[in-house]
């Protein structure tokens, strides 16, 4: 039984509760002075990786957190370390906006090979670009099995892995062997809060810095964002006084019933 090395990806994104604004030039969303945090699906990924280590004991030799982005991505990595990751790798780029899923997948592939990773846990999608691509792309590049939108993960002694996946009509269960890629859905677990002592300890955990050049990866964007605009506004806000009035409006004004 060989020991497993788990890689977990975490992206720094605008906090999920922030009401975003499009910038004046209509080129992007305003990010300056806006609260950022770890992508919620990635928190679930970190939690799952840490739980695997807690559950499987010595079978998991280490949990490595990785984030690709500007220098600020290190804050996100410290959060992952405080949640229980053993060490972190920061792949630094000049501009987060230019980093696209294919580029990230290639960076992760290089890290998987360099660090001899056996299992990769990523969020199913980042709540900023809403792409839902990186995990699947990484699986394709590595030619590893993929278990996306996972709501339950079990790993047996012989490295057999059973995953329940959230699909359109319900739940699907698949089985595979490690090495594999897992992407997390909301229902997989409830991420823990980092305690103050763990936040302090996380400051002493190793955090390595790399560049795409160090990994020999070209991360030039393939997609060009021509314009970012506000969605059309709804003219909602009308209130009715009673169920009778609601029925009347639906039948006569909206003519929908």
């Amino acid at each position: 039984m060989s020991s497993l090395r788990v890689l977990v990806g975490c992206k720094r994104v605008i906090d999920y509760a922030v009401k975003i604004r499009v910038n004046a030039a209509k080129t992007a969303v305003e990010t300056n002075g806006v609260k950022h945090s770890m992508n919620p699906f990635d928190e679930i990924a970190v939690e799952e990786a840490v739980r695997l280590k807690e559950k499987l004991g010595k079978k998991v030799s280490e949990v490595v957190a990785v984030s690709c982005g500007t220098a600020k991505a290190q804050e996100t990595l410290r959060t992952a370390l405080a949640m229980g990751a053993d060490r972190a790798i920061h792949v630094q780029v000049e501009d987060d906006a230019k980093l696209q899923p294919l580029g990230v997948a290639k960076l992760l592939k290089a890290i998987v090979e360099k660090e001899k990773i056996d299992l990769v846990v990523l969020g199913k999608q980042a709540i900023d670009d809403d792409s839902n691509q990186t995990g699947q792309m990484l699986a394709g590049l590595l030619n590893w099995p993929q278990a996306t939108f996972a709501s339950k993960v079990e790993i047996a002694e012989d490295n057999a892995i059973t995953v329940s996946r959230e699909v359109d009509g319900g739940i699907e269960t698949i089985a595979s062997k490690i090495p594999a890629i897992i992407t997390t859905d909301l229902r997989l677990n409830e991420p823990r809060y980092a305690s103050l002592p763990n936040i302090m300890k996380a400051k002493k955990k190793p955090l390595a810095k790399l560049t795409p050049g160090d990994l020999g990866v070209d991360v030039e964007p393939r997609l060009e964002v021509l314009e970012v605009s506000e969605p059309p506004k709804r003219s909602g806000g009308k209130k009715v006084e009673s169920v009778d009035e609601l029925v009347d409006k639906l039948k006569n004004e909206a003519a929908i019933l």
């Binding site: 605008i14 009401k19 975003i20 499009v22 969303v29 709540i127 900023d128 670009d129 809403d130 393939r222 997609l223 060009e224 964002v225 021509l226 314009e227 970012v228 605009s229 506000e230 969605p231």
Partner: peptide
């Protein structure tokens, strides 16, 4: 993008 709070026009090269 951003949960439908912004709309991006994207060109694939």
């Amino acid at each position: 993008i951003y949960a439908g709070n912004a709309i991006a026009k994207v060109k694939s090269n």
